[in-house]
Design a protein around this nucleic acid. Structure first.
Lengths: 183, 183
DNA sequence: CTTAAACATTTTAAGCTTAAAATATTTATC
DNA sequence: GATAAATATTTTAAGCTTAAAATGTTTAAG
């Protein structure tokens, strides 16, 4: 006679402290998925940060900001546009742009018709630097994810997109409950 | 006669700056996957940070550290064990433990036989707090990922695990090239 | 025993990040 | 035209994070 096989989706009671006890018996499959997602993306992110630093002495936030500007037109983008695009606070953009400007990678320009705003654009040198880094970056990602074949890449992309969409819907719903959302 | 359909895996030349030109024609499917992974995990992470803050006035690094301690035995863990487990620097653990200790959630103890080291453990109150937060945390993750059915959760977990493993192998290989790895 | 090496942690300097307050400018209202 | 509201950005205070240097302790070699 064999004991009944435990359901691998359920939390076990064998080890851990108070939290393990409180969560015992619940379905932890989505929690496990989240921990894998976090682990995987943190691993790749650490590797990319390290390589950007070693090869170009640049940080990921600066790389991301330059990437946004490289896609923008010749006028560049305003601080507010950068903040929304990169999903970081206004103050953060101010700080990162300050450093990039000091290095000569970007310039600030304020239009005379609205002196509140300022347009940030890559300099010639900044654009040249970014083009070089972008090619290396693409190569690093291909290297790090080379163990997935094309079908797996396509399936994983599809599922991550679905996960993102569903999570975004829940976040939006929670934000609606805060303010008085129109019924 | 119709024009040949463009391969969706290839980068197009239509828009963007110098980087878009430099990367034109290359397979960007893994890059696209990486951007989806980053987007998805950042979205969930932001939501969790927000909810931890609103509900318990706690940050994600403190929650993660308490989670590690909750799993550990009654003696807790040393600073070095925490640093390796959480994959953060020694100095970082010092800073986060300092704050948790000031709040009364953890205690430091140095064994008399080795005064270099120190064991960090949850206090009664810290353990109680964490148990409560862990239950809420599990609920939030289930909520945010509720749009994926059980089969999708299983498949996504499997693929993320594979992505992590392959990326780890590449990171290890790169580290080996740095030092003189034994042939 | 003395000294060097190894080990565990803390400190420091620099940078990233946010929320909230402050500043400056423009637009709308009376 | 004065005033209020809206808009765009910067500043500030607090916390997270790292790499590298510094500190204190233990172990190993002689």
């Amino acid at each position: 006679m064999s004991a009944p096989a435990p359901d691998p989706r359920r939390a076990e009671e064998t080890a851990g402290g108070a939290a393990a006890a409180a969560v015992a018996g619940r379905d932890v499959s989505r929690l496990r998925l989240w921990l894998r997602m976090l682990d995987g993306s943190n691993l790749v992110q650490r590797a990319i940060r390290q390589r950007l630093r070693d090869a170009y002495n640049v940080t990921l936030p600066r790389f991301d900001l330059m990437a946004a500007l490289d896609r923008a037109g010749p006028d560049g983008m305003t601080m507010g546009q950068l903040s929304r695009r990169l999903r970081v606070s206004n103050g953060n953009v101010t700080a990162v742009v300050d450093r990039l400007a000091k290095e000569g990678a970007v310039v600030r320009r304020s239009p005379p018709e609205d002196r509140r705003t300022s347009f940030i654009a890559l300099t010639e040198e900044g654009r040249r630097q970014f083009a070089e880094m972008a090619v290396a970056h693409l190569g690093w990602i291909d290297d790090l994810l080379a163990g997935l074949d094309d079908a797996e890449v396509a399936e994983l992309t599809r599922l991550m997109e679905k996960a993102r969409t569903t999570a975004q819907a829940r976040v939006d719903a929670a934000a609606g409950e805060q303010t008085g959302e129109p019924r």
